[in-house]
Amino acid sequence: MSLLARGLNVVALAAVIGVLIVLLWFQFARGELPCALCLVQRAAFIAAGLGFLLNVRFGSSESHYGIVIVSAMGGAAVAGRQVLLHIATSSRLSGPVVFGVHFETWALIAFCTIVLFCGAMLFVESQFVEGVRDVRPHALAQYASWLFVVIALGYAVSALLVCGVGVCAENPTGYQLPWK
């Protein structure tokens, strides 16, 4: 895998991890509980990040970029839906505002950026020469993999606490704690 492609995949993975950590911070430090559509977008971010993680861990593959693109397009569809709902109904189902822009709009921008990034990366044909391999991974890849496991686990627990085992509430106001 070319050094440039590997470096860019690491940067992209770090960016996705950063987004996921910031979202968790907003939820637990600022009390901004995610709505149902927000949770679906978060799942899309994790799924897209997994594509970059596969590139970092096993080497670049068109299928890995396909995973990123499909996940990001799904996330963009959900984010776009939430943006349109907010415009059409001025509903309260909108995320917090950061730099004057709602979360769901930032998510739409991020997903579109991810898709464009993958489109550009697919032009770097030299990264596919080696093919995928399962050799002893670089330490960075291992750390990133386990960090991703921890973050995904955190989101799974978060989703369970916010929505319980059934359908999510329209606008969650508290956690579904087992002892309540």
């Binding site: 949770l39 994790i46 496991v149 995904a152 999510c168």
Partner: peptide, 16 residues
């Protein structure tokens, strides 16, 4: 129900 995709994503990342 909403936790199911996240559980599967945990398993995916674990497999990676």
């Amino acid at each position: 129900m909403m936790a199911l995709p996240f559980v599967l994503l945990v398993l995916t990342s674990l497999a990676v």
